[in-house]
Amino acid sequence: MTEQLRWWVVVPMKDIRHAKSRLGGDPGRRRALAVAMARDTLRAAAGAVCVDGVVLVCDQPDDVPVLMVPGVRIEVRPGLDLNDALSAGAAVVRADDARRHLAALPADLPYLRSDELTVALGRVARHPRAVVADREGVGTALLTARAGAQLLPAFGPDSLTRHRASGAREVLLPARSGLRRDVDHQEDLMSGHGLGPCTHATLRGGRVLAAAEEGVRC
């Protein structure tokens, strides 16, 4: 049996004042949801048994306190778009060791479980670069690059096509996987089943953002 590869996960996070604008509604609630979803994503990534480290690249120094999660390193890079933030995070990871394997995740995967990420990373490991589609089959839920390959992130509209065109091999996962359940609209959060604790508490009216600011685990 082949030994499972060890991975470093990079997650980009835009300025939370402007995050998840397509969710609509009260700006304060959108901000709280963006933070909650990011924290759930980071905790799931850090908890995967094949993950050696997680790097979050955020836009604003003021966002750091509410995004701090055990096992996650935060890098502040103001003014970068999503792909430049991922490239910056990848550079940080490989500056310490060029042989590290890289995985990029969006910050809005509140249904993701650590064991699902472990399974996904095991399946993509056979390819130098790989991509997993989101639930709609258009965007990207996971992009990976083994040691010796560049990440080459091309997130944005129709990113799955661009990642495949750049040489990433698509790896299929069940549509029910939390890895594929990113959140862009309110209807993406209709089902509370399987939601991470931070996002679940926020939807129930809990003060997750305030708790995060006080260093309390949600």
Rank of each mutant, 00 (worst) to 15 (best):
A45R: 02
R204V: 07
M37C: 12
K20A: 14
R126F: 00
P78N: 13
D184N: 15
G178P: 07
D40W: 05
P61G: 08
G167Q: 11
V57M: 14
R73F: 13
A154Y: 07
G71M: 03
T202Q: 10
R176E: 10
L86T: 08
L173I: 05
R146L: 15
V35S: 08
R6N: 07
R176N: 01
R73G: 12
L5W: 06
P27R: 15
R22V: 04
G24P: 07
A125N: 07
H101V: 01
D96M: 14
V72H: 07
S177H: 07
D84Y: 00
R99Q: 09
G139H: 09
R31D: 00
P78Q: 12
L86E: 09
D40N: 08
R146E: 14
S177Y: 05
V9M: 02
S87P: 03
R94C: 14
R164Y: 11
E214G: 02
V124E: 03
M13L: 09
V9A: 02
H193D: 15
L82I: 13
Q4F: 08
G139A: 12
D81E: 15
P78D: 08
A19Y: 06
R39Q: 01
A36Y: 12
L151E: 11
A133P: 05
R123D: 04
A88I: 05
R129H: 06
T199F: 13
E136F: 10
A165F: 03
R31K: 05
R169V: 04
A19K: 04
T118G: 02
L142A: 00
H18M: 11
V124Q: 00
A141I: 11
L33C: 13
M1S: 13
V93C: 14
A125Y: 04
A44E: 01
G178Y: 13
A175H: 11
V216L: 11
G89C: 04
A201Q: 15
R181S: 10
K20Q: 14
V66Q: 10
T41F: 04
L117K: 00
D115L: 00
R22L: 12
P61C: 04
S166R: 15
V171F: 08
D134S: 11
G25S: 15
C58Q: 08
A145P: 00
A36C: 11
V35G: 05
G192Q: 00
E214K: 03
A103P: 03
V11F: 02
G24E: 05
L195Y: 14
H185F: 06
A120M: 04
W7Y: 09
R126M: 03
L82Y: 02
P12R: 08
L143K: 06
G215N: 13
D52K: 13
M37P: 12
L86V: 11
R6I: 08
V66S: 10
G71N: 13
A145I: 00
K20F: 12
E136M: 10
E75T: 08
V57E: 09
T118E: 03
R129F: 04
G178C: 06
A95K: 08
V54R: 03
A165Q: 15
I16R: 06
A107E: 14
V51C: 07
R135K: 01
E3I: 11
G79R: 07
A91K: 02
D26Q: 06
R17G: 03
P12A: 15
A95P: 02
